[in-house]
Design a binder for these strands. Sequence first.
DNA 1: GTATGTGCAAACTTTTTGCACTTCG
DNA 2: CGAAGTGCAAAAAGTTTGCACATAC
Lengths: 141, 141
Amino acid sequence: MNLTEIRNSLISKGLRVTPQRLSIFEAIIKLHDHPSADEIIAFIRQDQPNIATGTVYKVLDSLVENGLISKVKTDKDLMRYDALMVNHHHLYCVDSDKIHDYIDEELDALIAGYFAKKEISGFKIEDIRLQINGKFINEPS
Amino acid sequence: MNLTEIRNSLISKGLRVTPQRLSIFEAIIKLHDHPSADEIIAFIRQDQPNIATGTVYKVLDSLVENGLISKVKTDKDLMRYDALMVNHHHLYCVDSDKIHDYIDEELDALIAGYFAKKEISGFKIEDIRLQINGKFINEPS
DNA sequence: GTATGTGCAAACTTTTTGCACTTCG
DNA sequence: CGAAGTGCAAAAAGTTTGCACATAC
């Protein structure tokens, strides 16, 4: 996703295009490792030292509300943000506390097939995400 | 799990049995709906008004460290605690923000079978949890 | 021009910490 | 008795808020 696409996605949601929104959105994509608000702020301040933390939180909220990014949480720490909006799962490293995306359509189909036959009484499933805990063997970047 | 069993599980981990630990552990079991630290504190203060928040957090940490309870987080809010330690999944209600446990050995077997054949390169899986988002049709208690 | 967004600083919430005191074993 | 645990109050960490000012459209 490049700057023009970011711009268009803001416009498509009726959000005004501001330098702050562009750089926050871009930061999440570039940091790509589910950055926390803090990491996003630090990254942006390299170029734009005057951005306020309040602004970053407000922008993140509005992006989440408009479905442009999503929030993730680990069991240990704070909010993380994720620009990947297609259905995907998360690999959580128990050592380094990193989160990686995991896309597997075959797995999705398998699980969807299972719940097509077996329903959970009293519960209407909308979406299933796997939290796969484990360790990276050869630390990916 | 009754008081004697709670007591024994503390002893088995080398933890001293204190009234605070007993009532915190008991609260999590009785509240059974993945209470937050706040809810646990409020519940205990009904009987034991002088318990300090610092103590509750310290006790919760030690119970988590010793594998007697676990932490859960939603994408929206704070830590929640869970006394169910067997492998299980979570049903998240997108409306009410409630969390329910979901145990399904057939599903576990299906997923284990899948990952026995297909491995994720560079990642050693330890444990898989499903986050099943949806809605309760007839609100269970 | 005006609705929307931003900066700033203060406040709020949740969690952590240090240390003296207490209690379990 | 001694190690482990608790109470308290202060502080840290992360996030939210209100309002004046600035900017996108």
